[in-house]
Design a binder for these strands. Structure first.
Lengths: 227, 227
DNA sequence: AAAAGTAATTATGAATTCAGTATTCACGAT
DNA sequence: ATCGTGAATACTGAATTCATAATTACTTTT
C-alpha cells in the first residue's frame, strides 16, 4: 500500500477510507482506530480526523461522542430507502436530459446501448454492468444539473458495497434490457415524461433489493453483510 | 453573542456558521477568516477547520487550496437545479407517504391544512408559510425514509437564504392553495401516484425561481444577492 | 470465585506549535 | 508613472502536545 504523500490530505484520506469501506476491508460496525489508520496512511491525526468528519457527513461512517467512529451498518431498510431515492433521481435525470440533450449525445448513448445489447447476447455480465452504468451516467450528465449529479453520486457511494455483487437471474436481466430499449426510444423521441417514468420504474434497483432480501436475513432492520 | 461552551464542538460550530450564512452575516463570495471566527466563537482552529470541511461537504461553502474558504455564490442556475431536485424529492415523499401514513397522521395534516386556509383567507403571509412548511414536513416524515429526509434537509439548507423572503402575488398564491386542496384530497384517498405528481408540479418552488428571475440579474450564471 | 471499586492505560477532543504557501508592500528599473 | 521583482507578513496545512473521557486491568472484599 503506497503511502499518501501530499496535497488536500484530508480529501485524499477520506477517499482512501471510502475505498476501504467499499472493499470490505473495514467491516460495518467495526470501530475505526485513528492511530491504526494514521500509521497505515502515514498521516497525522489532524487530517485523518477531518476526513472522518467528512465521511460522517457523507453518511459512510458514524461518529459516537468520545467513542470514536464506526462504519455504518447497512440495514435492509437503509438500502431500500437509498434505492427509492436514487430511482427518483434517475427519473428526474431522464426528464431533464430530454430537455437539454444534443443529437450527438443521443447517438453516443445509442452506441453504448448497442454495445450493451451485444454484451447481453454474449451474457458477459461484467462488461454489461460497466456499459449499463455508463449509460445511466451519460443520461445523468445530459441532465445538466450539478446538484443532482453530486447527490446521486453520494447516495451511490453509500450502497456501493452491496451493488454489482449480485448475480442476475435470466428473467430480471431480460426485463432490464427491455426497460433499456424503452428508455432508448423515449430518449430519441426526447419524451422526458416517459423516460422519467421508465427510469423511476426501472427494475435494476428493485431487483437488487429483492435479491438482497432473498440472500440476507429478511429482518427489516437487520444489518446486511458486504458483497 | 453567547460563546460556545462544550460538546461536539465541530458540529456546533458548523451549525452556527450555517446560521451566519443563512442570515447573510457572511456574504456570498466573502473570504472566511479562520481567526476571526475562532475569536467570535471562542474556539481554537482545530474544531473550526473541521466545521469548515463539513460545511464544504454540505455545499454551503467552498474550500480553495491554500486560500481558505468562501461562502458559495448562489447563482440562478444553482438555485434552479436545487429546486428541481427538491421537487422530485417532494414527489417521492408524496408517493411513499401514501403507502405508510396512518389515519391519525392524515387528520393531523388535515388540521394543518385547514389552519393554512384560514391564514390564506386572512392573508397572513408569515403564518401561512409556517403552516405550509409544516404540512410539507409532515408528508416528508410520513414517507418514513430517513435518507430522503436528510437529503431534502441538506438541499433546503443550501437555498434557505433566498427562500421565504419573496412576496407572493395573489395569482400564484391562490394557485398554490388550489394545489394544496388537490394534495389533501389525494392524500386522503392515499393516491400516491397522484400526490407525487401534484407535489412534483407544485408551483411553490417554481414561483420562487420565477420571482428570483424577476428580482435579480437574469443572467443565467450570475450570482444572486441574499434575501 | 465473583463482583465491585479503583488505578492505569489508551483513545478521543481540543489547543498549540511548526511548516509551507499566498498575499502585500516596498523598492527599483524601464 | 507603471510594472516587475523580492522581502516581509499573514494565513492555511499539518503535526505535535495537552486535557479529558472511556476502557481495561488489577486489587480487594464479600
Amino acid at each position: 500500500m503506497t503511502k499518501i504523500l501530499q496535497r488536500n490530505l484530508y480529501r485524499e484520506v477520506a477517499d482512501r477510507i471510502g475505498e476501504l469501506i467499499e472493499h470490505g476491508e473495514l467491516s460495518p460496525g467495526e470501530r475505526i482506530s485513528e492511530k491504526q489508520l494514521c500509521d497505515r496512511f502515514g498521516v497525522s491525526r489532524t487530517p485523518l480526523r477531518e476526513a472522518l468528519k467528512v465521511l460522517a457527513t457523507e453518511g459512510l461512517i458514524e461518529l459516537l461522542p468520545n467513542r470514536g467512529a464506526r462504519v455504518v451498518q447497512l440495514t435492509f431498510k437503509k438500502v431500500k430507502d437509498t434505492y427509492d431515492l436514487m430511482a427518483a433521481l434517475e427519473g428526474l435525470s431522464g426528464e431533464l436530459a430530454c430537455e437539454y440533450i444534443s443529437d450527438a449525445e443521443i447517438s453516443a448513448i445509442r452506441k453504448l446501448h448497442d454495445t450493451m445489447l451485444e454484451h447481453y447476447r454474449n451474457r458477459d455480465l461484467l462488461p454489461y454492468f460497466k456499459v449499463n452504468r455508463q449509460i445511466h451516467e451519460s443520461i445523468l450528465a445530459a441532465a445538466n444539473n450539478d446538484v443532482l449529479q453530486e447527490t446521486y453520486s453520494n447516495l451511490n457511494q453509500r450502497v456501493k458495497r452491496v451493488r454489482y455483487s449480485k448475480k442476475m437471474t435470466e428473467r430480471y436481466w431480460s426485463q432490464a434490457v427491455k426497460d433499456h430499449e424503452n428508455m432508448m426510444a423515449a430518449l430519441e423521441k426526447r419524451d422526458g415524461a416517459l423516460l422519467g417514468q421508465i427510469l423511476r420504474d426501472h427494475l435494476c434497483n428493485k431487483i437488487e433489493v429483492a435479491t438482497l432480501a432473498g440472500v440476507i436475513n429478511p429482518d427489516y432492520d437487520k444489518s446486511i453483510a458486504n458483497g
